[in-house]
């Protein structure tokens, strides 16, 4: 089951956990199940996040695949200039 790194200011919503396990095969499932398991994350997920999978950062990529041993991080939604 992939472990998902949670950035510091969201950890109030995960009982202080920096990393949580989520049974998800892709990003859409990951976000849905995170919001379900930790409702405090839902507002930020709704506003928008990026997801890093094995060092590669995805935006809006619901179908990006997760493996059980994937390194996954929730990140703020990236943009640039």
């Amino acid at each position: 089951m992939p472990k998902v790194g949670i950035w510091g200011s969201l950890r109030d919503a995960t009982d202080g956990l920096a990393e949580v396990e989520v049974d998800a095969a892709n990003v859409r499932q990951l976000l849905d199940r995170l919001a379900e398991a930790y409702p405090g994350l839902a507002p930020q997920i709704e506003r928008g996040v990026s997801v890093s999978i094995d060092g590669k950062i995805y935006r809006n990529a619901w179908l990006a695949q997760l493996k059980p041993d994937s390194e996954v991080f929730l990140l703020p939604r990236l943009n640039g200039g």
Binding site: G8, R11, P43, Q44, P76
Partner: peptide, 20 residues
């Protein structure tokens, strides 16, 4: 938003924390 703790002025609107 919900990331801002109590006690700040209303102008403080987001808080982010990173690290390990």
């Amino acid at each position: 938003d919900e990331s801002v703790p109590d006690g700040w002025s209303k102008n403080v609107v987001r808080r982010y924390e990173f690290g390990h």
